[in-house]
Design a protein around this nucleic acid. Sequence first.
DNA 1: CACTGTCAAGAGCAGTGCTCTCGATTTTGT
DNA 2: ACAAAATCGAGAGCACTGCTCTTGACAGTG
Lengths: 223, 223
Amino acid sequence: MTATRTARERARAELTQEIKDEARRQLAEVGANGLSLRAVARELGMVSSALYRYFPSRDRLLTDLIVDAYNAIGEAAETGDPGTGEPRERWLAIWQATREWAKAHPHEYALIYGSPIPGYQAPQDTVAPAARVALALVKVLTHTELRAIDGDVPPGLRAQAETLTKALGIVAGPETVARLLMAWTQLFGAINFDLFGQYVGSVDPADEFFTHSARRMAEFVGL
Amino acid sequence: MTATRTARERARAELTQEIKDEARRQLAEVGANGLSLRAVARELGMVSSALYRYFPSRDRLLTDLIVDAYNAIGEAAETGDPGTGEPRERWLAIWQATREWAKAHPHEYALIYGSPIPGYQAPQDTVAPAARVALALVKVLTHTELRAIDGDVPPGLRAQAETLTKALGIVAGPETVARLLMAWTQLFGAINFDLFGQYVGSVDPADEFFTHSARRMAEFVGL
DNA sequence: CACTGTCAAGAGCAGTGCTCTCGATTTTGT
DNA sequence: ACAAAATCGAGAGCACTGCTCTTGACAGTG
């Protein structure tokens, strides 16, 4: 019963996966703009209309690829973390692993950290996967003596920081949380600028600058 | 002679401008992806093929809009700078003027600081306009006593920093230059995250966080 | 006045996302 | 075991896109 039912459903699941794989392959070649449902179908030896049995629209396919990409870069960041050892070295390793994934999958990266594609994608599905890189960085700080930093934090930001402190379960003052957010911003800001060509003419091979930034931001958050 | 010739050329220049204006209008509504040459022509009461007399391709039109956008955000940053007064306040004013332009023209902003559109746009035309915001920030530092910052800077980055020091004509050590680049990255990284929805769930109204970041980065570069 | 270059317009090509219908097959309920 | 129901791939077709090519009208030049 479940065997027969899964006969269909397994075929369906497999084909769904094949479609996503082929779409990802094409994404890597021609980018999100050039991704064509008809081309994907053609490559899979099926007709374009049949594809709509599996994805209701091109945007839904892209949204699924977005979620996958968030998880992929999140996993890259997590496995880049040695898990033990000097916190600053772990921090740096996560930064570099994240950047390396981005450079290896530029179009997938652009899909998630570039301009949003249509109007918007559903945020609900992407919120949890999107947080994985940030959480990997936060994880380094737990069970670690942070240099306490104080400074004036405006009331609204202080409230936001305290909410985050509770959600993350970390021991850090509002200024430190704000700096963590700045470090997170710096990480992806630097990857964006590097990948999208904004560093051309200033720090063209950006490797050393990126590493330098990672270290400085580690100090900046009190690590 | 020049009068009659300019009669034609003036008509041509005017129409070229009208096309760009209409394209910019549509860009603001439907984004770069949705920008359609046929729709632009339709709105202007002409036929699509006639448009190719003025722009050889859709990409060329977009490239022109990109250059315009770089200049617009650069001008916003420059006029946001009061020019005199407390350097830190000038620095903050530039940050805020830049962000406000971005929030007022999200699609134009995405055009220049989001994912690069097709394969690439010609970098040569965009290099100078793209530097205007950064130069506005640098201008605040000239004729100002900077707190000297020393720190280990790897050799490659040090060389890049020294090249920049000469090009910009500023008096600053390599560590300061590196931090300036980080501040520049932070500025646009924060605007990106804000505009593209990455701050949702952490610092959702990002105004205070942005201002806070601006101040902290001012200290960070030694201002 | 004839000539040359510029222009808008139209037809047309190849491609796109998406919808609908039509048989064929598979799964399900009795 | 057989009929009903759900699911599937295929095909035709719609409205749209960027872009090319040709045609006929107009303006400026010798």
